[in-house]
């Protein structure tokens, strides 16, 4: 059994959910999603949040690697591997941590809009395509 289901902050009865205000429901759902987007232990319903966390982590990893490559140029070539080998893993770890931290601290409303844009991907794609056409004209 998932320990969270038994914990005090576990599932709320439907009655309690229905008594919540719109804002309370909004933040409650966000906290549930966030908890699971940042975890690899739970099965979750399709949520774009995990995709965003992955993309953010990959972007930060690439950024750290680029920064490291610039710095590595100043190191003599014979000693460079001593720096780049652990540097790769450091950049990977830092990238993953930064990606997760950014998603965690970006705010519930920003997360909501990003998740919605991904969930309503046909609409997002449609808007992007139409905007691109507009600018082309």
């Amino acid at each position: 059994m998932n320990p969270w289901l038994k914990s005090p902050e576990g599932p709320l009865p439907e009655k309690v959910l229905r008594e919540m205000s719109d804002d309370e429901l909004f933040f409650y759902e966000d906290s549930l999603l966030l908890k699971n987007e940042l975890s690899t232990e739970f099965r979750i319903r399709a949520s774009g949040g995990r995709f965003v966390v992955f993309v953010l982590s990959a972007l930060f990893f690439a950024a750290y690697m680029a920064a490291m490559a610039v710095f590595a140029k100043s190191i003599p070539e014979q000693q460079r591997a001593l720096f780049t080998f652990p540097g790769f893993f450091l950049a990977l770890g830092l990238g993953v941590v930064t990606g997760h931290m950014l998603w965690k601290h970006i705010g519930a409303h920003a997360r909501f809009w990003i998740r919605s844009a991904l969930h309503y991907w046909p609409v997002t794609l449609y808007v992007v395509a139409m905007t691109a056409l507009l600018f082309k004209k």
């Binding site: 059994m1 998932n2 969270w4 289901l5 599932p11 439907e14 959910l17 229905r18 429901l25 909004f26 409650y28 759902e29 549930l32 999603l33 699971n36 975890s39 690899t40 232990e41 739970f42 099965r43 979750i44 319903r45 399709a46 995990r50 995709f51 992955f54």
Partner: peptide, 29 residues
């Protein structure tokens, strides 16, 4: 939103490590 949360609870099942049913971007859902 309420229905999403309720359905979400039922998703919080234990994850058997061997079958690899973990939260992933390319999940069955």
């Amino acid at each position: 939103r309420i229905q999403r949360i309720l359905s979400f609870y039922s998703r919080l099942q234990p994850v058997p490590r061997l079958t690899g049913r973990r939260a992933s971007m390319v999940s069955r859902d």
